[in-house]
Deep mutational scan, measured.
Amino acid sequence: KHCVKCNKAITSGGITYQDQPWHADCFVCVTCSKKLAGQRFTAVEDQYYCVDCYKN
């Protein structure tokens, strides 16, 4: 599998969101770069925000 963000191979520790593979380090808030894996977040038009950034 290849990460949908960076297009590099996922060798271990990847996550899946909406049936797409991601590196955990690539699945981050677009505003603050906080890792979103296992966290609550909001998706708006294929942009992902942590709860704090989305509220602001």
Rank of each mutant, 00 (worst) to 15 (best):
A43T: 09
V44H: 15
K34D: 09
C29I: 01
Q18D: 12
G38S: 09
A9D: 09
D19G: 12
A9S: 12
T42C: 07
E45Q: 06
H23S: 02
A37H: 13
K34S: 13
W22L: 12
C32F: 00
C32G: 00
D46A: 15
T31P: 04
V28H: 11
Q47I: 03
S12T: 15
Y17E: 10
V4A: 05
T42P: 04
F41E: 14
Y48T: 10
V44G: 10
V4Q: 02
S12K: 11
G13D: 04
Q47F: 13
K5Y: 15
Q20G: 07
D25T: 09
F27T: 04
A43H: 10
A9G: 11
K5S: 15
H2W: 01
A9W: 10
D46S: 15
I15Y: 11
D46N: 03
C50P: 01
K34T: 03
C53D: 04
Q39D: 12
C6H: 03
H2D: 15
K5M: 15
D19M: 07
S33V: 08
H2Y: 15
D46W: 04
Y17R: 10
V30M: 09
T42K: 07
T31Q: 06
K34H: 08
V28C: 09
Q18C: 13
Q47V: 11
G38E: 09
F27L: 09
I10F: 07
V30L: 14
F27N: 01
C50L: 00
S33P: 10
A24R: 15
N7A: 15
H23K: 01
C53P: 00
K34W: 03
T16Y: 02
G14D: 13
A43L: 07
P21C: 05
G13E: 11
L36Q: 04
V30E: 08
Y49P: 03
I10C: 06
S33K: 05
V30I: 15
Y49C: 02
R40I: 00
P21Y: 14
A43E: 05
T42L: 05
I10D: 01
Q39L: 11
T16I: 05
C3S: 01
S33M: 05
Q20K: 11
A9Y: 06
C26R: 01
A37G: 12
K1V: 03
T11Y: 09
F41Q: 14
P21N: 10
A9V: 14
C6W: 01
S33W: 06
K1T: 01
K8R: 05
I10S: 02
Q20V: 07
Y17T: 11
D19K: 13
K8M: 12
Y49V: 12
C6P: 04
S33A: 10
Y54C: 09
Q18R: 13
H2L: 09
A37S: 07
I15E: 12
K5Q: 14
Y49M: 13
G38L: 07
A9I: 15
C32S: 00
K35S: 08
T16K: 04
Y17G: 13
I10L: 09
I10W: 07
H2Q: 06
Q47S: 06
W22I: 05
R40K: 14
Y49K: 08
T42G: 15
F41W: 11
Q20Y: 06
P21W: 04
V30Y: 10
D52S: 07
N56G: 04
L36Y: 01
C53Y: 02
N7G: 14
Q18K: 10
G13I: 07
W22R: 09
K34E: 07
H23R: 01
W22T: 05
V4K: 02
D19L: 07
V28Y: 09
D52Q: 10
C50Y: 00
A37M: 06
C50N: 01
I10V: 06
A37P: 10
A43V: 08
H23G: 02
K5F: 10
S33I: 02
Y17S: 12
N56E: 01
Y17N: 14
Q18S: 11
H23M: 01
K5D: 03
A43Y: 12
V28I: 15
G38C: 06
F41L: 12
T31V: 07
R40A: 11
C3R: 01
H2V: 14
K5E: 13
F27P: 02
V44R: 09
W22V: 11
W22Y: 05
H2S: 13
C26E: 01
S12D: 15
C3I: 00
Y49G: 06
K34Y: 04
C6I: 02
T16Q: 08
T31Y: 15
D19R: 06
C50R: 01
G13C: 04
L36F: 11
K34M: 06
K1R: 01
C6F: 02
Y17H: 14
R40D: 08
I15C: 07
F27S: 04
V4G: 05
G13V: 04
F41K: 15
N7I: 13
D19Y: 12
A24I: 14
C32Q: 01
A43K: 09
K1E: 04
K1W: 02
C50T: 01
G14V: 11
Q39N: 09
D52T: 07
L36T: 03
Q39V: 10
G14P: 06
A43N: 14
F27H: 01
K8F: 09
C3Y: 02
C3P: 00
K34C: 04
Y17C: 13
P21H: 05
S12R: 08
G13K: 08
Y54G: 12
T11M: 14
F27D: 00
F27W: 11
A37Y: 08
Q39Y: 07
G38A: 11
C3M: 01
A24P: 12
V30W: 13
C53F: 03
Y49D: 09
Y49F: 15
C29F: 00
D19N: 11
G13H: 08
D52M: 06
I10E: 01
R40E: 13
V51T: 12
G38F: 04
F27G: 03
T11K: 03
K34G: 07
Q18T: 08
H23L: 00
Y54K: 12
N7D: 04
A37K: 13
K1M: 08
Y54N: 04
V4I: 13
L36V: 07
E45A: 13
F41H: 13
D19S: 11
G14I: 13
V28E: 10
C3W: 00
E45Y: 05
Y17V: 14
C29A: 01
P21M: 05
G13T: 07
V4R: 03
Y48V: 12
G38N: 09
C26W: 01
I15G: 08
Y48K: 05
C50D: 02
G14A: 13
K5H: 15
D46V: 03
C53A: 00
A37L: 12
T31C: 09
S12W: 12
Q39M: 10
K35D: 14
Q20W: 05
A24T: 01
T16S: 14
A43W: 08
A24V: 06
H2P: 03
D52A: 12
G13Y: 04
C3Q: 00
Y54I: 01
C32D: 01
R40V: 08
D19F: 05
D52R: 07
Q20L: 12
G38M: 06
T42A: 04
K34N: 10
N7W: 15
N56V: 15
E45N: 13
C53V: 01
G13Q: 08
D46R: 09
V51K: 15
C32V: 00
T31K: 05
E45L: 08
V4F: 14
I10A: 03
G38T: 07
K35F: 05
C6Q: 04
N56L: 14
T42I: 05
K8L: 10
Y48E: 06
T42R: 12
C6L: 01
L36C: 02
K55G: 15
C50K: 02
A37I: 08
Q18A: 09
T31H: 05
R40P: 07
A9P: 09
V51D: 07
T42H: 02
C50E: 02
K1L: 15
C29D: 00
C32T: 00
